[in-house]
Simulated assay, not measured.
Amino acid sequence: MKFLLLPLGLVALTAQAHASDARFMAALGKLDPKTRLEQVCDFEAMRRISKGGPRVERAKSDALVPPQHLGNTLIAKGGAYRAGGKWMQVAFTCKATPDHKTVLDFTYKTGTVIPPAKWQSLGLWK
């Protein structure tokens, strides 16, 4: 019989990530469907964009332009995400399950840096 030994820190981080995901999923159930769709899509944007670059700290589908809701699909043409202390533009299309708790399809395109002088007027923060 073989045993896999994992560093204690890795186990703690994995457990923390699962607990965080569980709290997020529990909180989703308390939101109205429109807000739930925006939140699950913003979370997916953070996850997907982080895979290709620096860790994304926050994503907002409504930063520059309100997103468009089409049933179970959210189209965000004026979104933003924060990574490395900067806010960047992002556009995405996110299709979720009818309960708006699981993302089925997600495509995105990142844009340019949003100048710090515009952050306050857009509801963004340092």
Rank of each mutant, 00 (worst) to 15 (best):
G9P: 02
L37Q: 01
L4A: 13
I114Y: 07
F92C: 00
K77C: 00
P66L: 07
A45E: 04
Q16C: 09
F106D: 00
V65F: 12
P66W: 09
D32L: 07
G84L: 10
D99L: 08
G52D: 15
A12G: 04
A96G: 07
H18G: 09
T93S: 04
K118H: 11
T97A: 13
L64P: 00
L37R: 05
N72K: 11
Y81D: 00
T112P: 00
A117R: 14
C41N: 04
L31A: 04
H69Y: 15
G84M: 09
I75G: 00
A117S: 15
A83P: 02
A19Y: 08
Y108R: 02
K86H: 11
A117V: 13
K60L: 14
T110A: 01
Q89V: 05
W87Q: 02
R48W: 01
K30Y: 06
V40K: 01
V65M: 12
R47L: 11
L70W: 04
M25P: 00
R23D: 09
A17F: 06
W87M: 04
H69L: 12
A19H: 11
R23H: 07
T93D: 00
R23M: 04
G85F: 09
K30V: 10
L13Y: 12
L64I: 08
C41D: 03
P98E: 06
E57A: 09
L4W: 13
E44G: 00
T35Y: 09
A59Y: 06
T97C: 07
S121H: 10
M1P: 05
A63I: 05
N72L: 04
T107D: 10
A63V: 04
K86L: 11
D99G: 06
G53S: 11
S20F: 05
N72T: 12
K2W: 15
A91I: 09
G123T: 06
L28R: 01
F43T: 09
G78R: 11
G29E: 06
V113W: 15
R36E: 03
R58A: 13
A15T: 08
R23Q: 12
P115C: 08
D21R: 14
L64T: 01
M25H: 13
H69I: 14
A45Y: 03
L31G: 01
I114F: 06
H69N: 04
R58Q: 15
L8I: 13
K101H: 09
S121Q: 15
R58E: 15
T93Y: 01
A91T: 10
L4M: 12
D99Q: 09
Q16V: 03
F43Q: 15
G111R: 07
V90T: 08
A83Y: 09
K51H: 07
P7W: 11
E57D: 12
C94R: 00
